[in-house]
């Protein structure tokens, strides 16, 4: 049963990965056809779309080669914690629109918790100490201005 599962997964990998690359190439090629063209006097050897099209065609050819010749082994299934971590990254990007450092603190707190560490000092380090320390370092030492948000407004006034 497990052998069959692996075989199915391997077949999926051998076909789905190249297929995804080919779809990506097709979309990218379509986009290149929308690039402006320049008159021959200005093109200086190549039209703007020529080089990307050449690279996309190479990628398409290699994807076909991958599908028919260069077969891969199936990777082991991912543990659920990876999907949760991926989902949290999406959540981080959403929350970062409200405040970058709030998002970093919440992400660090949740990640540590999800990864199985419930010690309060560990949670405090990743949720408060590190984000605040990094903020101070970049703000004071490197003069980096961060986007205004809920927490950064408290600092910037």
């Amino acid at each position: 049963m497990r052998g069959r599962e692996t075989a199915v997964r391997r077949a999926a990998v051998n076909w789905i990965v190249p297929l995804c690359i080919i779809v990506f190439c097709a979309c990218a090629y379509f986009l290149t056809t929308e690039f402006d063209r320049v008159p021959p006097i200005l093109k200086r050897g190549m039209q703007p779309a020529d080089f990307p099209q050449l690279v996309i065609m190479l990628m398409g050819f290699l994807a076909l080669w991958l599908a028919f010749v260069d077969k891969s082994t199936a990777p082991t299934p991912l543990p659920p914690v990876v999907y949760v971590s991926l989902g949290m990254m999406a959540g981080f990007l959403g929350l970062a629109q409200v405040d970058l450092f709030l998002a970093l603190g919440v992400f660090g707190f949740c990640l540590t918790l999800i990864w199985g560490d419930r010690r309060w000092w560990a949670l405090a380090i990743v949720a408060v100490v590190v984000p605040f320390g990094v903020f101070l370092l970049f703000d004071q030492a490197f003069d980096i201005r961060f986007p205004r948000g809920l927490l950064t407004n408290l600092w910037y006034g």
């Binding site: 970093l104 660090g108 990864w115 560490d117 990743v126």
Partner: peptide
Amino acid sequence: VTILWPSVFT
């Protein structure tokens, strides 16, 4: 790793 990697992310 529960302290290292969230810090690396920051």
